[in-house]
Every structure is written in structure tokens, then in C-alpha cells.
Amino acid sequence: MGVRSTACTGRNIRMKKVLVVDDSLSVARQLEKIISESGEFVCVGHAKNGAEAIKMNHTENPDIICMDMNMPGMDGLTALRSLVVLDKDVKVVMVTSLGGVGDKFTEALRLGARNVISKPFESIDVLNILREL
């Protein structure tokens, strides 16, 4: 796995790379828009399920993965389990409408998610959480 980019100030800004994982085209569009308009992050791809996320983490080497929980095929929590084993430096934020379900939130954190963003979300909440990573 290559060296990840780091955000810094000045002319040679290297924006943090974000991979979006969601089966919903519209959520992927929402997140990509927030990420690209921030000027601080760049979206390096969109995976539609957990299996694609694992592959794209290897090929795109993102700094942060924003991943849905409820997806057909490999769901987000199953993918999270694999990602943290395959890549100990991976930073995953779950983006889900189930964030308010205490058990789901706790399970995600225990499996290694850095944070959980509940839907519906505001742009500023997403960016604040990404900036902390």
C-alpha cells in the first residue's frame, strides 16, 4: 500500500482523497458534491457495495472512506470488518440513516469506524467530521 497524501497549506496543496461507498446514486452525488466543493478533499471514486470498496481501497489508496451501512451484496459493516484487517491505517466513516440506532452506531465504532454520519446530513457536519481525521 502506497503512502497516503496529507493535507497542507500553501501552494502545493495535496487534498485528502475520499472514496465514497453507497449503492444509492443520489447519495454518492450528494457526497461527491460536498467533497469536491470543499476545496479540501477530492473524491477518488464511487464504489456501489462493500466488495467494490475493498478493491478500490487497494487501487485508489484513499485517505478516508465514506461508506453506507445498508447495501445489497456486501453491506457496510461486513466490508468495514475486512477493511480494518487488510489495511490497519484505513479511516472509515459510516454514512447511514441508521446512525441513530444505538446498537448499529456502537457496532460500527467497535469494528473500527472513526465516526458515523447520520442521514439526513448537512454539508458542514460531513466536512467537520472529515477534517477531524
Binding site: 440513516s97 446512525g99 441513530g100 440506532v101 444505538g102 452506531f105 465516526n115 447520520s118
Partner: peptide, 15 residues
């Protein structure tokens, strides 16, 4: 903006 439980709220606010 969403329904949350107390622990989630505290983490989200950085408390």
C-alpha cells in the same frame, strides 16, 4: 438533523 441517541450526539459535537 437526524434522530440520534445521546452518545452519538456527544461524539458528533466533540464533547
Amino acid at each position: 438533523m437526524a434522530v440520534k441517541f445521546f452518545g452519538q450526539y456527544l461524539v458528533e459535537k466533540g464533547i
